[in-house]
Computed example of a mutant assay.
Amino acid sequence: MRVTKEPEVRKQEILDTALKLFGENGYEKTSIADIAKAIGVAQGLCYRYFPSKEALFDCAIAQYADVLVEQFADAEKDDRKTLRQIIEEMPTTMEKQDTKYYSVFHGTENRKFHDQLALKVCEKLVPLVEKLLQRAKQKGEIQFDDLQAAATFCVYGQLGILLAEDLTQEDKSKRIREFLIFALHL
């Protein structure tokens, strides 16, 4: 018997199943046919929502990036804190190991996926950081004009530290916080 689901529910089911299989079997060893079989639907249904496995994966990256960036949205909404306080209270890590996404982006053979995720998170964080910098400028906390460049540098500039495998999460956080406070003259 055919089971009909709302389009967004079905799309999410396909994404969730794909992530599970990518995590278990690896991206290269997982096909659209494998995903469809695991859900119990025709392969064509998956292609209705995603024209290719790559498009499906890109959507998963964007979705996970949204989840991670959402953790910073509260900082932008709370205008009582100074920019320095926001930096000092930034989460030390954005990811939780027990999520459906973690194994996909942190598997030994999935390094390039993690790097793609990091770039997508940066892309989504820049506008948020730019708003924080704009507010800090209005409050007189910072004195420079090119806020877009500053936001881009603050976000993308962290990647070298965040992706370093020889540093602990604590060391990464400490270095990033200290540098941002120094660079922004806070």
Rank of each mutant, 00 (worst) to 15 (best):
Met1Glu: 14
Thr4Asp: 10
Pro7Asn: 14
Pro7Cys: 11
Val9Glu: 14
Arg10Ser: 12
Asp16Thr: 07
Asn25Lys: 15
Asn25Ile: 05
Gly26Glu: 08
Ile35Lys: 06
Ala38Leu: 09
Gln43Trp: 03
Gln43Lys: 13
Leu45Lys: 12
Arg48Ile: 09
Ala55Lys: 14
Phe57Leu: 11
Gln63Arg: 13
Gln71Tyr: 00
Ala73Lys: 13
Ala75His: 07
Glu88Val: 03
Glu88Gly: 03
Thr92Lys: 14
Thr93Met: 08
Glu95Tyr: 00
Lys96Tyr: 08
Gln97Asn: 07
Phe105Ser: 00
His106Ser: 07
Gly107Trp: 09
Lys112Thr: 07
Asp115Lys: 14
Leu119Gln: 12
Val121Phe: 01
Val126Asn: 04
Leu128Phe: 09
Val129Glu: 03
Glu130Val: 11
Gln134Lys: 15
Lys137Glu: 08
Gln138Lys: 15
Gly140Thr: 15
Asp145Pro: 04
Asp146Val: 12
Leu147Gln: 11
Leu147Val: 11
Gln148Ala: 08
Thr152Asp: 05
Phe153Gln: 09
Gly157Trp: 01
Gln158Arg: 06
Leu159Trp: 04
Gly160Glu: 04
Ile161Gly: 06
Ala164Phe: 05
Asp166Asn: 12
Glu170Ile: 06
Asp171Leu: 10
Lys172Phe: 01
Ile176Tyr: 01
Ile176Pro: 01
Phe182Leu: 12
His185Arg: 13
Leu186Phe: 09
